[in-house]
Nucleic acid binder design. Structure first.
Lengths: 354, 354
DNA sequence: ATGGTGATGGTAAGCGCTTTCCAGCCGCGC
DNA sequence: GCGCGGCTGGAAAGCGCTTACCATCACCAT
């Protein structure tokens, strides 16, 4: 190949185009397109070979946006999470991306920093990018924003597919973890261990996940009867730092609690730290601690954290599968079970007066 | 607005187009384009208002691929990591995405499952998508693949920007953590604590990160002189499971070691677990453990992990900044310091015979 | 022989947007 | 009073690709 006849030499904007390949192979654009990018039409083996060779020689790389424009669809899925570096979302994202990849899709990811407004904004941007599907992995908000609903409906109207992870009050396919039942199981565990005075570390009340877990726990606690007192609920950030702070204020307000239920594992880690390092309490001898989610490292904490396991990776995968399957007439809801994992951070209630 | 004159009614392929907006506003396509999507050209205030109103009424959403085609560039950056749910990469990704967002870019993310071949594949796919920039966050491999180099060079030739995180043997802007110096600091610490027999838990030797940290440690250990014996190096997966397994085999092979240096925190977590839970050793009384990276939860382990801190979020951010700044004549290398964090998992060497 | 039937290749009309020209118009200075 | 430069708006030529639709041609049945 002479330097002169390399179309890449005149690399103006983009590089080698399909036309260059077609010319070099001595075929029409249509033929080149048919062989290089899957088509239902068959091309004769000799021409096909010529085109293939030409493409390789020129190092042709198809222009995605151009294909997207012509085909009116792309091969990318959009994923919206709260924070990429929150292990909860990281696991969900891993599952979702795995499935996307299996289907030949690329994944566009956006993190909202837990800001509802940016959720809407990203849905719009993804729509503009003409992604095939959008996955909202964050928890919904109580009475989810009009705006989010409109944005998603718009996107769906245009043929886009939508799926949600966690309850959202929105009419789209949803992967639904058993937040209430999981929390209820925690209530039963603590009751069985003889705890009477317990505290709950809650995230922002507007999050559906928080509301559901809290309600599940409180309802069960009440229905279990007996002479237990009402749980003290402290609200803070749904993070390690939030859990740390909330634990300090909980123990100040209600020093008599013998068990702390953190509504997610991140808060539980903060609680463990506050209890053991700051407050000098032994876990579980003085205070039991329970988390929720079963992030991957919870078994490595000391003591190992009793928590409610959610199959996060699988949840992400299921959601992506939903979104890649044909649109159903009515929104589907895929329940995901939660499993109580009893480990070292819980024990019998400290006997009063000891 | 009558139902009949809503162009969305004839929603064939895509929805509302710029032409619909232009018609409704009674202006030309050019004008509509100028007001809706930033242009250097000024449009009269009245027309601009008309267009804006029309766009809002029709809920116009620009077609990204079409814009990309016409402009010959996109607003997306590509990010390749080994695993999204590995906290090391999650933190880097968070930093990178933050900066991308600040610059109005969307992020496309791909995870290779530590498979070098898929790294190349993703670079190609990103190139096809005409992303503005590609960030490779995984560690390089010793004598990095020809193929990767070609793919990246191709992309860069076409005007794309490339940046790497960690050493890669490739001529592109790189954010360079002080792996060798950090590891050397660990050697000094262990020497100072009186350790003579130490083990190293290494990841796959072909990873540059592993090679650098290992060399840094070994060189320093040797140069420190004295009567210390040569470290026993065990290679395994660069993960928690790998660390666990490697620790078991290390202690079987060299029961006399009084300190274990894991080349990353994930392996250190596995080591802690193997040592304490499986082998019944006390840390740091029987064996000291050191990690590398300072993942966010290492302070919450029991004992808190002594490790080398790397500012992961910032590294991701820096890399994205590099890639969004104009291409330099020669590849830049941005050094990032590593800081030894001495915490509870290290202590004086057990006295021989006690 | 001859019209019919598939296969295969080519032609050309877009996909929705940006951007270069070009035309019209204003106000200005000489 | 008239030509000229500065502005604003529109027409139209693409950006690189897909995909009807059409033209051939070989081959078969009649």
């Amino acid at each position: 190949m002479q330097p002169g006849d390399d179309p890449r030499a005149r690399r103006g904007p983009g590089g080698v185009t399909l036309r260059d390949v077609a010319e070099r192979a001595g075929v029409s654009l249509a033929t080149a397109s048919r062989v290089l990018n899957g088509s239902s039409r068959v091309v004769g083996p000799d021409l096909a070979a010529r085109v293939g060779r030409a493409a390789a020689e020129l190092r042709y790389a198809a222009n995605g946006p151009a294909q997207a424009l012509a085909r009116a669809t792309t091969n990318v899925a959009g994923l919206v999470v709260h924070e990429v570096d929150d292990p909860y979302f990281a696991s969900i994202a891993a599952g979702a991306m795995r499935v996307a990849t299996e289907h030949g899709l690329l994944t566009m990811m956006a993190s909202t920093s837990r800001d509802a407004g940016r959720e809407v904004e990203y849905v719009h941007r993804f729509q503009a990018q003409r992604v095939r599907a959008v996955l909202l992995a964050g928890s919904g908000r109580v009475g989810d924003g009009e705006e989010l609903g409109r944005a998603l409906a718009d996107f769906a109207d245009g043929g886009g597919r939508v799926a949600l992870v966690s309850e959202h009050d929105l009419p789209f396919d949803t992967v639904l973890p058993a937040n209430r039942r999981g929390a209820a199981a925690v209530a039963r565990l603590l009751r069985d261990l003889g705890h009477r005075e317990v505290g709950v570390l809650a995230g922002p009340g507007e999050l559906r996940t928080v509301a559901d877990r809290l309600a599940g726990f409180l309802d069960a606690w009440e229905q279990l009867g007996g002479d237990r007192s009402e749980p003290v609920v402290v609200e803070a950030d749904f993070s390690r730092a939030g859990g740390h702070a909330a634990t300090l204020s909980l123990l100040a307000r209600a020093p008599q609690v013998t068990a702390v239920f953190a509504l997610n594992d991140l808060m539980a880690v903060g609680a463990l730290s506050a209890l053991q390092a700051d407050l000098g309490r032994r876990v579980p001898d003085d205070v039991s601690v329970v988390g929720f989610d079963d992030l991957w490292f919870t078994g490595d904490l000391q003591p190992a954290l009793t928590t409610v396991r959610l199959p996060l990776e699988e949840m992400g995968a299921r959601a992506m599968e939903l979104v890649l399957s044909p649109a159903p007439a009515d929104p589907r809801r895929v329940p995901v079970p939660a499993e109580l994992l009893v480990r070292g951070s819980t024990g019998p209630a400290r006997r009063p007066g000891t």
